[in-house]
């Protein structure tokens, strides 16, 4: 089988897995809903309790998981490509923490504003964090090495995270709303919130897919990209704008679900190879699949407790990050 055919098959397999786990996620929860009820709620809504649960709880939850999972994973893939840095992701480089702080500040200043306002705060926070981490990480000798960027991101995340916690401690009113959100959860999003934020995420995803060829060329490193005639400043800026749209939008939607942006692109690279023309679509499908599947699994195993999916991602992602950092540093210094 040719590489092209096998790569298409991988994307098809991911799409099928995503559809199956999406359907499953609609059926599991505090009350199990059979698939027929879900289908009936779509085509013939009768206002019953089951149909109401499907329409106001399960569907929004699925949509939030789909969009945020794709957005975090694609943002991570783009960051790894553009910085030539295997450790890059919106979580590790502090983008998520910046967006989260901006939202918490906005929530504590203007209570009960619209989701359409918060998402712009998230973009501003994400962009500010990206600029700070890049400036700090590239200062000094050797420029922006992978490990220096990751360290700058970790420091910024810790600092910004304490600010976020401090605001939450003094502002008990928003604490309850934000506590679950700050670890990353797809629970309890209203359809209105999702509809206000989803367009930004979808624009980001469409941009990433359209520009995947440019991102692939950027991933060759500045030297080769420049010799091939790529305008580095323009395309790096476009890539950064897409990352801010994706990560900021996803944080506004579900809170910072960490590690999806780190390990999904790596898994995609293992399966489809080093070409970002394939890694980006594979990450979009894979990120949505991982988040939706893990969220459904948590509800199936622990139906009485709503465990935020961000916790499951951290349990999978943290050991992976350690493995990655160790294996990379063993081969060459970062």
């Amino acid at each position: 089988m040719s590489t092209l055919a096998s790569r298409r098959l991988v994307l098809l397999g991911l799409a099928v897995a995503l559809c199956v786990s999406a359907a499953w996620s609609l059926t599991v929860g505090t009350i199990a809903l059979p698939l027929q009820t879900i289908v009936a709620a779509i085509i013939d809504f009768d206002g019953s309790r089951e149909h109401l649960i499907a329409a106001t709880v399960r569907f929004p939850r699925l949509l939030a998981g789909l969009i945020a999972g794709s957005a975090f994973a694609v943002a991570g893939a783009i960051m790894q490509a553009v910085t030539n840095n295997p450790l890059a992701s919106p979580g590790i480089l502090g983008i998520n923490a910046g967006a989260a702080l901006a939202i918490v500040v906005a929530l504590s200043v203007v209570d009960g504003g619209a989701a359409g306002v918060y998402v712009w705060c998230a973009f501003a926070g994400a962009a500010a964090a990206a600029i700070v981490v890049y400036a700090v990480g590239s200062a000094g000798r050797g420029g922006a090495t992978p490990l220096k960027l990751a360290l700058a991101g970790a420091i910024l995340s810790a600092f910004v995270g304490s600010l976020t916690t401090a605001i939450l401690i003094f502002d008990t009113a928003s604490l309850d709303v934000v506590r679950v959100w700050s670890i990353g959860s797809v629970e309890g999003r209203s359809l209105a919130t999702i509809m206000a934020i989803a367009p930004y995420g979808l624009v980001g995803l469409a941009g990433a897919l359209l520009l995947r060829g440019q991102i692939a060329t950027l991933s060759l490193g500045p030297e080769i990209a420049a010799q091939l005639g790529q305008n580095l400043a323009v395309w790096r800026l476009a890539a950064a704008a897409i990352v801010v749209l994706l990560a900021g939008g996803a944080v506004a939607l579900t809170g910072p679900i960490g590690f999806v942006g780190l390990f999904v692109p790596h898994a995609a690279r293992l399966i489809v190879g080093t070409d970002y023309r394939w890694i980006i679509p594979a990450s979009a499908l894979g990120g949505a699949f991982v988040v939706v599947f893990c969220d459904a699994l948590l509800r199936a195993v622990l139906p009485d407790r709503d465990v935020p999916v961000g916790i499951a991602m951290a349990l999978i992602g943290a050991p992976f990050f350690i493995h990655l950092a160790r294996s990379r540093t063993a081969r060459r210094p970062l």
């Binding site: 060329t217 080769i224 420049a226 010799q227 005639g229 790529q230 305008n231 080093t274 070409d275």
Partner: peptide, 30 residues
């Protein structure tokens, strides 16, 4: 412009390197 220049002048650097795992034909296609 940079793209037009790259259609007319090609350069081979010493010690050029590409991402790990990239194949010969993928590099050539770039």
């Amino acid at each position: 412009g940079p793209r037009e220049a790259a259609r007319r002048v090609g350069i081979l650097f010493q010690g050029a390197s590409a991402p790990e795992g990239m194949t010969v034909s993928e590099l050539v296609q770039e």
